[in-house]
Design a protein around this nucleic acid. Structure first.
Length: 698
DNA sequence: GAAATCTCAAGAAC
DNA sequence: CGTTCTTGAGATTT
């Protein structure tokens, strides 16, 4: 199967600098209502939102992470092209299907109908993050684009300008703190379209988790509220509708809420299943479908993952469906033969409603018909066939389903469980790549060992809760230890990263199923240790992992310093808690909730001066490779002793991680970068492949 | 545990 | 430009 790159193409390891400025009221202008060729009046003195998140900084007006400068500095220059439908030229192929003429395709990917000359799927690298992106053009010279750097947000720091006449929600803002060396504000060389997509998803989910924490009663829907904040702040990607591939969104990407797909431009309907727009074909215009969400209740052929039978929209239980809106667009798409994005739902027992969304790539409609539904009314049906040559999407899920039912059906297994049963779930060892029979011997353990006994500097914290610790319980001392909030949501998701988390300890009265005992319960998902192509062994997971999910502890022998640890070429199994700020980039942006800017946690967190050596003894964590754009970060946690200087190192998912994606974390700056010349010989060349790769690590 | 009920936001249409 | 309509998701209750 297709192995996803281990390296998400950006780093979230830059410093968090936040600068949220008042919103302007421009948002509703883009994209213009379909078919409406109204003119656009440029905003007067647009205030804008500029946020530097873990993934970079962006603004409303030029909503780019560092290095993402708008291609069209002037709003006026590009606005009105967006008001017009996409212009697509098609030619008929031999089959009688209308087919798009092939146009230049910078990505070399199989996507779409690359109509010429006035519509072109944008090269991914220049796709922007904001609504001003000048594609889908029916009027402007499409090939006249030059990649320009405008004086964009990176260098602009405007204070608290106020929005005049904005009917949008205003968000209290604050000037960015001038941190030493604003590295994150420097232009980056990255033109990776995935970066803004991941920034949006991460910002959204951090907000959602925080809202959930603030309102445990769940009277409000945190997903909707976070979505509204993101929408009104224009914190979204790919705002212009397009046919085919969406820059920065890959086949197999997973989503936990419909609104997430809206925010990244994959499917702009927050509720409806069919997304569509008016496109121009020569002198004609037609509504065409852009994407559908299949909630999984259709009479789909289960075994054939390349076929989807999709039902039209409209209340089929009350009346015949009508050939309008989405249904009409699907019908037109059958004749225009344009590519349509398909999002399918998959069962995920780890989430409350039991399902998540998987982007399954591009399909075309090959057939349509009308049939009587159960209630006796006419329902439209559309037969979608998956375009060939795409990486596996939902097929990965189907494959893993089979593996879970029958583990022996997993080919190339060297060992069914390298933990020999001591993890909650088996961890199989597989090699789909070469003849290596396994890693060098080590003793599998789920707990760290200390070179000398921990001498607690203070008594072990403990609470007197009779039952599980409850949020808002002022009597729970563990709650106080953690700043008044439980660090995990009710389903065990880490809400935000902290210098240190105090889980309930062995001295606490609460039971083991207490919400504040997440990491001590151990691994909960199904891992496999696998052979990578160029980085030895690696770690990945059969399950989809939601951002904030506990992965595992770094297990090994804990010693106070690296002195005395024998170094050799083979010994790359040392964890050093350098660069303790790495997780904080993941946290929510307080300003978006009207909260004061948070203090820089990296300044108050004490540097940790121990190492963990997993050469001879360890768990799955010793197989996790380095990436400069990781999908996992570590978080110090204490629960079984009172010495805050020796916390457990616990790994959590930084992003939603699709099944079978390699798990990686940032090993930290290389020893040379840290000024440690003695240790700099340990520095290794990095093969992570990230566009933000630093070249060397640890 | 499945079905009914409730509430909700975004985009399309008007 | 503002208002209404359309669309089911997601949570809760039965």
């Amino acid at each position: 199967m297709e192995e996803r790159s281990n390296c998400a193409p950006h780093s979230w390891s830059e410093s968090v600098v936040l600068d949220v400025k008042p919103l302007r009221s421009l948002a509703p202008m883009y994209p213009a209502p379909l078919g409406q060729k109204n003119t656009f009046s440029p905003p007067n003195a647009p205030p804008f939102v500029s946020v530097t998140t873990p993934f970079g900084s962006f603004t409303t007006e030029s909503a780019f992470p560092p290095g993402f400068c708008p291609l069209f500095p002037s709003f006026a220059a590009s606005h009105d092209v967006n008001q017009k439908p996409v212009d697509v030229n098609f030619v008929n192929n031999a089959n009688g299907f209308a087919r798009a003429s092939e146009g230049p395709d910078i990505n070399g990917s199989l996507h779409n109908a690359s109509p010429s000359p006035s519509f072109q799927t944008p090269p991914a690298a220049i796709v922007s993050f904001n609504k001003e992106e000048p594609l889908a053009s029916g009027a402007s010279p499409p090939y006249g684009r030059t990649i320009k750097r405008s004086p964009c947000s990176n260098s602009i720091h405007i204070g608290n300008s106020e929005t005049e006449g904005s009917n949008k929600k205003r968000i209290k803002t604050r000037r960015p703190k001038a941190t030493g060396g604003d590295l994150s504000l420097l232009p980056s060389s990255s033109h990776d379209p995935r970066e803004p997509v991941e920034v949006v998803l991460m910002t959204f989910d951090a907000l959602r988790r925080r809202l959930m924490q603030l309102d445990e009663s769940k009277r409000l829907r945190p997903d909707l509220k976070a979505g509204t904040i993101m929408m009104s702040s224009d914190l979204r990607a790919n705002m212009v509708k397009r046919i085919g591939q969406v820059p920065g969104v890959a086949v197999g990407d997973i989503f936990y809420f419909r609104i997430e797909m809206c925010l990244v431009g994959l499917h702009s309907q927050s509720v409806a299943g069919i997304d569509y727009m008016t496109a121009r074909f020569g002198n004609e215009e037609d509504p065409v479908a852009l994407g559908v969400v299949s909630a999984g209740v259709y009479d789909n052929e289960e075994d054939n993952v390349d076929v989807l039978i999709y039902s039209g929209q409209g209340s089929s239980s009350k009346d015949d469906q009508k050939l309008e809106r989405g249904n009409l667009a699907l019908e037109k798409s059958l004749h225009r033969a344009n590519e349509i994005r398909v999002i399918r739902s998959a069962k995920d027992p780890f989430v409350l409603n039991g399902k998540i969304y998987v982007y399954d790539g591009l399909y075309k409609i090959h057939e349509s018909w009308v049939e009587k539904g159960k209630s006796g009314f006419n329902t439209f049906k559309y037969k979608f066939l998956r375009e060939p040559g795409q990486p596996d999407g939902i097929a990965v899920w189907k494959m893993i389903e089979k593996w879970k039912q029958n583990p022996s059906s997993r080919a190339n297994v060297i060992l069914p469980d390298i933990s020999s049963g001591i993890e909650n779930m088996p961890v199989c060892l597989v090699n789909d790549v070469d003849d290596e029979k396994g890693p060098r011997y080590f003793a599998y353990s789920t707990t760290v060992s200390y070179s000398k006994p921990i001498t607690s500097s203070r008594p072990l914290h403990s609470c007197m809760c009779n039952s599980v610790c409850m949020p808002g319980d002022s009597n729970c001392s563990c709650l106080h230890q953690n700043g008044g909030f439980l660090p995990y949501s009710s389903n065990g998701i880490l809400i935000s990263c902290k210098p240190l988390i105090y889980e309930c300890s062995v001295s606490c009265q609460c039971p083991t199923n207490c919400r504040n005992r997440v990491t001590q319960r151990g691994v909960q998902v199904h891992f496999e240790v696998f052979r990578t192509r160029d980085r030895g062994w690696g770690l990945r997971c059969w399950d989809a992992i939601r951002a904030g999910t506990f992965i595992c502890e770094y297990v090994g022998e804990v010693t106070e310093s690296i002195q005395g640890v024998e170094y050799d070429e083979e010994n790359d199994h040392i964890f050093q808690p350098r660069h303790a700020d790495q997780g904080f980039k993941w946290n929510y942006v307080p300003e978006l909730l009207g909260e004061p800017s948070s203090v820089d946690l990296s300044e108050i967190s004490k540097p940790l001066s121990f190492i963990i050596n997993s050469k001879n003894m360890g768990n799955i964590s010793r197989f996790m490779n380095h990436s400069c754009s990781p999908n996992v970060f570590w978080q110090p946690v204490v629960h079984d002793h009172g010495d805050d200087g020796f916390p457990h190192i616990m790994f959590f998912a930084a992003k939603h991680i699709p099944p079978m994606t390699e798990l990686t974390y940032d090993y930290g700056p290389s020893s040379a970068e840290m000024g440690d010349y003695v240790q700099s010989r340990r520095t290794k060349e990095c093969f992570c492949g990230s566009v933000k790769c630093r070249g060397f690590f640890g």
